[in-house]
């Protein structure tokens, strides 16, 4: 333990550091991703990316090994269950064509222009957020794979987020659960639109909907209803991607405002593979909607 006896004469060190920090915060808030500060962030990601990939490979292997050890007893039961699932899947596959046709009719009905043919880049998730107050992931594909800032990111279960930072061999994705993220969504039934926003430290979204005026159908959203991206003009996400399902509804008595808590279909804690859509929003798109 150090006995520190120097008085206030050296406090200028602290004052200088604080002044520098405040200056940097101000400059960064103004310049955003452009300029020297934005470049420094991308360079840092690029430098540590190989380390992150290596660590991810090691931790993934260790986690798989632990899973194998701890679940050895249940492997036989799981095997039986998988055989049963396979039989059911084969049965479902036979009904698949009919379901696809029904799905197309459903989308036509909703006028959803899903860019099914949009070119996509498949990427592995290599890192979660490095801080506790943001919801981001880092993927292993970047500008050298054609990924650019603003591109939407999806998984098999639904919408994941959008690219906010990109470097040659990786990119950072802001998840839809981040408070700085906002997704323009449309309820599948009834067709009400609103903006779903993330909440600090939570895995759900909040969506405020206003009850339509009298001639329109009454507000009949129920728990379990699905929300999809609306693709309204100016949206940064293409239309028709599943966002989540309604978990609860809070209605204020005497008002037409309803607050919906939406649980994303994607389990971000287990996300391993994503697809980045080479789709860019119209120039009029505001930041993060």
């Amino acid at each position: 333990m150090v006995a520190y006896r120097r008085g206030g004469s050296r406090r200028y060190v602290l004052a200088l550091l604080l002044l520098t920090a405040v200056t940097l915060v101000t400059l960064d808030s103004r310049s955003g991703e452009s300029g020297v500060l934005g470049f420094a962030g991308r360079a840092a990601h690029q430098v540590v990316s190989p380390v992150a990939v290596g660590v991810h490979a090691v931790t993934g292997a260790v986690a798989d090994w632990f899973d194998g050890v701890t679940s050895a007893g249940s492997l036989k039961r799981e095997n039986d269950r998988l055989r049963q699932d396979l039989a059911e899947a084969e049965s479902k596959a036979r009904r698949g064509d009919a379901a696809l046709q029904e799905n197309r009719r459903y989308k036509d009905l909703l006028d959803l222009e899903v860019p099914e043919d949009a070119e996509a880049v498949t990427a592995d998730v290599i890192l979660g957020p490095s801080g506790n107050y943001e919801s981001t992931i880092v993927i292993d594909k970047g500008s050298s794979a054609g990924i650019a800032k603003g591109m939407p990111v999806v998984a098999a279960e639904g919408l994941v987020g959008r690219v906010v930072e990109v470097w040659p061999n990786g990119a950072k994705v802001l998840l839809i659960t981040d408070p700085r993220s906002g997704v323009s969504v449309r309820m599948v039934r009834p067709r009400l639109t609103g903006e779903a926003e993330g909440r600090a430290g939570r895995s759900t979204l909040v969506l405020d909907l206003v009850e339509p005026a009298a001639p329109a159908p009454r507000f009949d959203v129920v728990v379990g209803d699905d929300a999809v991206t609306s693709g309204l003009e100016g949206s940064v996400y293409p239309p028709g991607f599943l966002v989540g399902e309604v978990l609860s509804i809070e209605s204020k008595p005497g008002t037409t405002l309803h607050r919906l808590i939406v649980r994303p279909f994607v389990d971000f804690s287990r996300l391993e593979i994503v697809r980045v859509l080479r789709w860019t929003p119209s120039p009029a798109a505001p930041e993060g909607r």
């Binding site: 604080l18 520098t20 920090a21 940097l24 962030g41 540590v48 943001e134």
Partner: peptide, 20 residues
């Protein structure tokens, strides 16, 4: 400052906190 490079919050926030 190094940690700030990996965050979406303004550069300098963690540096300020770390110094204090």
């Amino acid at each position: 400052l190094g940690a700030d490079l990996f965050l979406e919050t303004p550069l300098g926030l963690t540096a300020l906190s770390g110094a204090l």
